[in-house]
Design a protein around this nucleic acid. Sequence first.
RNA 1: GCCUGGGUGGCGGAACUGGUAGACGCAAGGGACUUAAAAUCCCUCGGUACUUAGUGCUGUACGGGUUCGAUUCCCGUCCCAGGCACCA
Length: 862
Amino acid sequence: MEERYDPKVIEPKWQRIWDKKGLFRVTEDPKKEKYYILEMFPYPSGKIHMGHVRNYTIGDVVARYKRMHGFNVLHPMGWDAFGMPAENAAIANNTHPARWTYENIDYMRGQLKRMGFSYDWDREIATCRPEYYRWEQWLFLKMLEKDMVYRKESFVNWCDDCQTVLANEQVEAGACWRCGKIVRQKKLWQWFFRITDYAEDLLVHCDALPGWPEKVTTMQKNWIGKSFGAEIRFAVANSSQSISVFTTRPDTLFGATFMCLAPEHPLVVELSRNTGEQAAVDEFVERIALQDRSARTLENYEKEGVFIGAWCINPVTGYQMPIFAANFALMEYGTGAVMSVPAHDQRDFEFAKKYGLYIIPVVKPLDSDLDARTMTEAYEGQGEMIHSGPFDGLDNEAAKDAIVAHLAKKELGRKTVSFRLRDWGISRQRYWGAPIPVVHCDRCGVVPVLESQLPIVLPEDADLLEGGRSPLPGLDEFKKTECPECGAQDAHRETDTMDTFVESSWYFERYCSPRFDQGMLDRSAVSYWMPVDQYIGGVEHAILHLLYSRYFTRVLRDFGLVEFKEPFTRLLTQGMVCKETLSCPNHGFIFPDDVIEGAVPKCAKCGLPVAVGRVEKMSKSKRNVIDPNSLLDRYGADTTRLFCLFAAPPERDLEWSEQGVDGSFRFLNRIWRRASAWMDRITRTSAYQGSPNDLEGPVRELFKKTHQTVQKVTFDIEDRFHFNTAISAIMELVNSLYSVDENEDSAHASEVVRFAVESIVLLLAPIVPHFSDELWHALGYDASVLETPWPEFDPACLARDELTVVVQVNGKLRSRFDIHADADDEVIKKRALSDERVAKFIEGKMVRKIIVVKKKLVNIVV
RNA sequence: GCCUGGGUGGCGGAACUGGUAGACGCAAGGGACUUAAAAUCCCUCGGUACUUAGUGCUGUACGGGUUCGAUUCCCGUCCCAGGCACCA
């Protein structure tokens, strides 16, 4: 064994050996229990960042741990390779998206290999390859057949910078999720997946995902946004028309005094014709339509509306309700119409005050009265019905059902539910994505491509255009085609491509049979490996990716391709990697490498003192980043992995600390040194297997501590993924190893030390695999630690000889004593009462009660 | 505004179903080794008071409560992070 721990030598060496042995290659084996561990695949942006390092380290520990437990572990990796950054980078660097993407993939694959991750690289996927997306196109055709995809012209979220449409899920506070540009509304023909057909099922099964963080399922539930209420029909005065509204408060129907329609609502234009209000209405509708969606979501957004010159009739009061077009009414939610009850809805209240509309309170709080003239805000709480004819006196919750039942009899209303979730718009006016496999024909309309013509290959040699516009519409050899139905020569292909979230909605299923060319998925492989037992990734995908994946899996199930609904049994959302920001008065945020260390850190460029800012998520813009490469060069993969796991539990944010990394490196060296010191002696013996009773002193303690540590580490990793406490426990064990004198020469010392060292190596194997294999080899083993079973502990060896019992008087700690572990409660109690330090506190007082907690604590109440 | 988390030493973080608060590491201080330094090994390390090798008081954001006993359970308040936000 080398004197010095040198990761630069041992890491490449073991990576070569693993590779040569094909240690990570797996196939279906019905005799073995499977375990599918998956980390979210990366976008090949150029190089990996610390977020990837952390995410993939966590996954790799689990993969190796499960492997040592005898599971047949599937642990794949691939690339979410379509997407806009490739186009932007290609334009900026005068290269091509495909070339840029493939080069990035090659580089990043190399980085991941340097980290020593145990991926089965034979299963690698890049979603931009036709062999992958052809099956996505195939599924699209199947979905089209079943009317699960449709095309409609609608207002869409449009980002001018990205020159494309964004799904609702991709708009954050009115801005593009990718570039931050304010999103505006644009009317376009778009393809949609009918995800809303699955809203109920997706919602209900949120509660059937006990292995998911509650935070994520709650976010999904809120996103789906089911609300219970009623649909009520209002007749329009002097017309055969009627307006349907959705309301969650049918109990307030008697207080509905006006009606608000979304500006895009078809009846707005229709009813305002020839009323004298037409001009004002048209002006208003046009103005709102052009307005940014972002302005609509601003907090102080002014509620405004315009009377459209028509009235509708309240079905229970007969009241003539003026109809308004209002900017806050959304066409996409419910029916696009709101029955306004100013007394019981704050927004309606403000609107009524602004336009001088009638307010009728119909639900009164139990302990006070409501008066329309003196109300200063709407009353939205529970209460007793008033001004509601036959329903007066009822509890308002009961009145909801009663009023809907009453309306139902007259066919004017019914109980219903509404969802916030909308259909998933998947069209993107971008080049670097999977082509949508349809053809537009002047005679036949929209025609699906023939299955035999798949894949519709994205031409990889297209020249990119200025401003990020897609070259496809201008690329005749792609666009021009014949109609699959009538054979017309002047048909043209759809030039929109699919949202890249489509690719990531099924890649985990494709990993089961990544080279299968007879279909999208090889059923037998999928049914062996799926579902994913443990999925790991960032919370930022809590809604988008995870909801789409759950939806897609349901679609695949409907086509008989898979047998389950939920793709991910357990989910872990790891925290962000953070670091303090550094800034210089002249240069703004600066990189850690541009700082001259010292009592007062200074900027390398101008020498001014550097201000240390708050700890924030590592990002290029804040320049508080650490390049994984520099860590690998300096400390190696094992130290990097160790620190990522030790500094914080996985679900929490991790604060990067240079000194912390150094500490992790020192820890490995500390093990290395002690192992070296004993190596000659312990290679000549074997691990101690006797009873602790034949041992004494630090050797005996070390033996027991080893068993205790195996138990603790197993528990921490298996049940909780708390690698930080598992590592702490191993550190304690190493400290115990140090308390055995290096020159100790007793009969069993070498055997026990060997046992301890072997255990340390095995327990560390998933965490620092190269280091562990090197030591394992030094101990004389030929197999990799990964091929060695996880150590077991013997409960008989765990028991401590002496226990410390603490004594409290009135709940305050007063004394403690050690006592033999098998002493019973009576003995412990007697010993506590006779304790001299305790005596001080109970002297002259009456002992009222004594509580004995088994082998731990005595509390004397006086 | 609503929904999730979270607030523990100088710092990152421990404490399983209420039972020794601060494991483990970092930083700091002291000692050993050394001509010296680095590295390494050992020790100390929440605050505070005193009669200072000891003992007491206090301490897990803040204020209450339940309990023999609360970082842990309950009620209220404040702060921080994330998500949603005119959703009828």
